[in-house]
Amino acid sequence: MNIYVTGSLAFDRIMSFPDKFSNHILPDKIHILNVCFLVDGLTERFGGTAGNIAYSLALLDEKSVILSQVGKDFAAYDDRLHQFGFSVEGIRTLDQEFTAGAYITTDQSDNQITGFNPGAMKYPCQYDMSKINGDDALGIISPGNLGDMIDHPKYYRENKIPFIFDPGQQIPAFTSEQLKEAFLDAEILITNDYELEMIMNTTGMSKDDILDSVAYLITTLGEKGSAVNCKGEETLVDVVPAEAVVDPTGAGDAFRSGLLKGLSLGKTVVDACKLGATCATYAVEKNGTQEHFFTMDEFTARYEAVFGPME
């Protein structure tokens, strides 16, 4: 099956402040805030929703096509994509922009100050969607350019191509009607529990209303696992215990990779979520969203320790 991943490609630039922000912010001067934090250094990591999903899919021996947009500073990320054998035909380069980037400063109390530059993500990827063959295609629309998140579901729906809609942090950017239409007839709408509440608040829809619009609703619940709903029937899927929870960032994208892999193998949605749970555990054990690694033998052993034989 050909998997198409719509979403962002971004650099995560992470800085550590060896003190507490609160020691340098005067509460009575917050209205004229002007501060400078001297950090210990900067670590640059590869990220973005589409990049993260594609990365874990590659570890699962599944090559996907990324539909995204990047800027003039993309060379190092481009080398990485070629290293893993990704197709770059769906990636648009805008030479006048920088690749999307998050600038994250963390203090000793784990408080964070983040600046995000969308850069090239402000523009649609302009991929020729007619190249996608409905007979063996599966799409996922993850957070990225808003226009792509509106247009790509429409193409999949009109051409009867199964797709997963994953709005994530872009939920506030949609109007109520845009959001309703975007996940209409999706094979799966996937969110965490907080995002599900946001969708219901934005659209005015109940959970039952949403299930009338999609085939499956998957809600990730952090350390409690995930819930799969289909027309009122709910199935809970356990987590795979982590050796150490180092950084939960990126676990959701890794979960989606395992889910996509399972669906590409023809597994049920519930069984595909078990692959997702296994993949997510590797992500939380490492700092960064693309720093984990596993072989398929290691993955299978870890899966089977929790869920039994992988058929």
Results as ranks from 00 to 15, higher is better:
L42F: 10
L42Q: 15
L42D: 10
L42C: 08
L42S: 09
L42W: 04
T43Q: 09
T43E: 07
T43G: 02
T43D: 06
T43I: 05
E44F: 00
E44S: 04
R45E: 15
R45M: 15
R45W: 06
R45Q: 15
F46R: 14
F46N: 06
G47V: 01
G47H: 00
G47Y: 05
G48D: 06
T49V: 11
T49I: 00
A50P: 02
G51W: 03
G51Q: 08
G51K: 07
N52T: 07
N52D: 00
N52I: 00
I53L: 03
I53F: 02
I53Y: 05
A54T: 10
A54D: 02
A54G: 02
S56V: 03
S56Y: 13
S56K: 11
S56M: 10
L57S: 13
L57R: 13
L57E: 05
A58C: 12
A58N: 09
L59K: 14
L59W: 03
L59P: 09
L60F: 12
L60N: 14
L60D: 13
L60K: 14
L60W: 14
L60Q: 08
D61S: 11
E62T: 15
E62C: 14
K63L: 08
K63A: 07
S64A: 07
S64V: 07
S64Q: 01
V65M: 11
V65N: 11
V65Y: 08
V65K: 14
V65G: 08
I66N: 04
I66H: 05
L67E: 01
S68T: 04
S68K: 07
S68I: 07
Q69H: 06
Q69P: 00
Q69F: 03
V70P: 01
V70Q: 04
V70E: 02
G71I: 04
G71L: 03
K72F: 03
K72E: 00
D73C: 13
D73G: 09
D73W: 03
D73E: 06
D73A: 00
D73M: 04
F74T: 01
F74E: 01
F74L: 05
F74I: 00
A75N: 12
A75I: 03
A75F: 13
A75V: 13
A76D: 06
A76V: 06
A76L: 11
Y77C: 05
Y77H: 05
D78H: 09
D78V: 01
D79K: 15
D79R: 06
D79A: 07
D79E: 09
R80I: 02
L81N: 04
L81F: 05
L81M: 10
L81H: 05
L81I: 05
H82N: 15
H82K: 15
H82W: 11
Q83H: 12
Q83F: 14
G85V: 04
F86K: 12
S87V: 14
S87H: 10
S87Y: 11
S87C: 14
S87A: 10
S87L: 15
S87I: 11
